[in-house]
Nucleic acid binder design. Sequence first.
DNA 1: GTCTATATGTGGATAGAC
DNA 2: GTCTATCCACATATAGAC
Lengths: 204, 204
Amino acid sequence: MVHKQAPPVRKLDDQGKILSNAARLFREKGFEKTSLKEIAEACNMLPGSLYYRYSTKETLLVELMRRGVGLVTAEVEMAYADSDDPVQQLRFCINAHLRALLVDPDTVYALLFEWRSLGPEAREEIVALRDQYESLWAEILAVMIEKGVIKKNVDSRLLRLIGFGALNWVATWFDPNGDHSLEAIGDFVWQIAIGGVITKGVQS
Amino acid sequence: MVHKQAPPVRKLDDQGKILSNAARLFREKGFEKTSLKEIAEACNMLPGSLYYRYSTKETLLVELMRRGVGLVTAEVEMAYADSDDPVQQLRFCINAHLRALLVDPDTVYALLFEWRSLGPEAREEIVALRDQYESLWAEILAVMIEKGVIKKNVDSRLLRLIGFGALNWVATWFDPNGDHSLEAIGDFVWQIAIGGVITKGVQS
DNA sequence: GTCTATATGTGGATAGAC
DNA sequence: GTCTATCCACATATAGAC
């Protein structure tokens, strides 16, 4: 077997550069207001060159979103497998979802807020992927309720939706240089999950 | 003093029709993908006619957002004044914020998700209004902590941001004909605030 | 106040040289 | 694989009649 001449020197640079620049611009200006010319300029290329990789602007967004879902899914699945104690598992999964917002914030931002720019077919694909991720959480929460980690009388769908809100919204205000670290945010959410915020005794 | 000849027969119909149609379309398709032609058609008008009321497309969005902030602010202020018991006040304010998402969902949706379509000057204005609303909540939460309703050790800024997330995200999935009524959602959030979701005894 | 007609700009996308 | 050049559609906005 012949030795490969050149070591696999990451070929992602081309595609990766386009995707990351696009993601950044989409986050800053929104998908619709970002022109292919701008994306190309950010990559030191010309508009026409982008079409060699992505036949339409929408394709670019779809690819971005696919990666976004893959990212959060991988983080949460790893976190779940990272402990045998269900309480720890839940806590780790919350932190994993939050971490995914940081690992590649621009990509996840597109996933959360640019789905209206997808045509019907593309939207169907992405929604299916998103539903898959949500069903992963549905399973996790079901297990937690079954194991008695989460109170039996809690509506798991509402918990998932409200919890997603609390976590996803972080993407709109989180500042890596700001007052609150991701860990602090995760701890805070966990404290609420454990005991709420209302003082005992004044509860009506 | 001369009697006014015609009674004030709601003159909002014209402007109101434009705004509500625009809000609905902005929510469905997004601001950038909605053309003035579509808005005009929805109002049984022609594109040129819209410019009599709004000199630019952005002006329309700004006016919409002004109303959105006014709406939620009014709801929460009324709710706060609706009781003397601080616990009830907090609960009412949460419900009021949620209710504002329903009263005029399209308008509030624009406020939450279309701010990137504003130019620098307009954005400054709307952000200032939004900050005003947030400071209203900051005050409410500060009072609640001071009065011992909310636990003393809770970071009020984090609570506000996480809470806004939980509530605002409802706008992305709420279905008036769906399983959960706004009241049920408010109760659910309140239950979490009171005691969290984790079973006592398994808390690590 | 609403219409017609149109100016003007821009963006996505294609064809084909290199 | 990237470039040049360009087509084409469409959107915002304007001017001016009615």
